[in-house]
């Protein structure tokens, strides 16, 4: 009885976490394993490679489709993130700090827009973009990316800003600073961690986008990584190189893993902050 009890609690202490880790990492390890399989061994129908090669990584870095997509994705996502976070910071400050009619409406609007089906926007955007020359350009993706990065940032930041000790701002104002100065000199440094978290989350979303990426681009000029993965080509138009796609997939996962490793606590806080009270 007692023995079983300790076994059970041990299972709870170690089994649970191990299970969670297995679940989350298993597909990642699989794709990593695929990326090391040589072209001849890709169909060995085993989890692990029979022999090990780095050839697939050499292939993807020699593929202009991929290298330019990497460049596009990094910059488009970063620009969309920075712009959204800048606009959102100002708005969230007002929402958390000031009392004015319509702020609840703005938050509801942000929530509604964050839930907007991207596919609904794609058709009209395509029609507008092609007539004003934004089709297949960076700006042509940055703008639609803001349709989700901006509401997400407003959401996360309003929640963060509510936790900031605003008395310090008041103290600054008593010392003779204008509200704007108080915001810039006192609150901005305090708010920076929240802003950074919002930026990470927004970046994840922009980095993940597929619908806009395949619909509003058509060449290396703006095609982002997820779209490039879907269009990877082999030695002929009939070949689809699974191993190379896997290698590319691993490469684009590395930034995600690094961000998660560095900012795990911030991301968790950011994800839950906007969603649940408290």
């Amino acid at each position: 009885m007692n023995k079983q009890g300790t076994f059970r609690s041990r299972l709870g202490t170690y089994g649970g976490p191990v299970l969670v880790i297995l679940w989350t990492l298993f597909p990642v390890i699989w794709i990593l394993s695929l990326s090391f399989k040589p072209e001849s061994g890709i169909n060995n129908q085993k989890f692990l490679p029979d022999s090990f090669t780095l050839e697939n990584y050499r292939t993807v870095f020699k593929t202009p489709l991929f290298t330019s997509a990497l460049r596009n994705s990094i910059f488009i996502s970063l620009i969309a993130t920075v712009l959204s976070v800048m606009i959102a910071t100002v708005a969230a400050y007002a929402i958390a700090r000031l009392d004015f009619p319509g702020k609840k409406l703005i938050l509801s609007l942000a929530l509604a827009i964050a839930m907007f089906p991207a596919v609904s926007l794609v058709g009209p955007l395509f029609d507008i973009w092609r007539s004003i020359g934004l089709y297949d350009t960076w700006l042509g993706l940055i703008i639609p990316y803001m349709s989700f990065t901006l509401p997400l940032s407003i959401w996360t930041l309003s929640a963060f800003f509510r936790e900031i000790p605003w008395e310090m701002e008041q103290a600054a104002q008593i010392d003779g600073a204008t509200p704007w100065q108080a915001f810039r000199k006192v609150i901005v440094p305090l708010a920076a961690p929240g802003v950074f978290t919002a930026a990470i989350l927004a970046f994840f979303f922009a980095w993940n986008d597929f619908v806009f990426g395949i619909s509003l681009t058509s060449t290396d000029a703006a095609r982002p990584v997820p779209a490039a993965l879907a269009f990877f080509t082999g030695a002929s138009q009939f070949q689809r190189p699974a191993a190379a796609i896997s290698a590319a997939a691993v490469v684009v996962t590395i930034p995600v893993v690094i961000l998660v490793l560095l900012f795990q606590r911030r991301i968790v806080a950011g994800l839950t902050a906007g969603a649940v009270k408290g």
Partner: peptide, 17 residues
Amino acid sequence: VAVAVVLVASATAACGG
């Protein structure tokens, strides 16, 4: 570290255009 990662990534991506 984050800035370095971005720089390295963009430098890798920058070739070929």
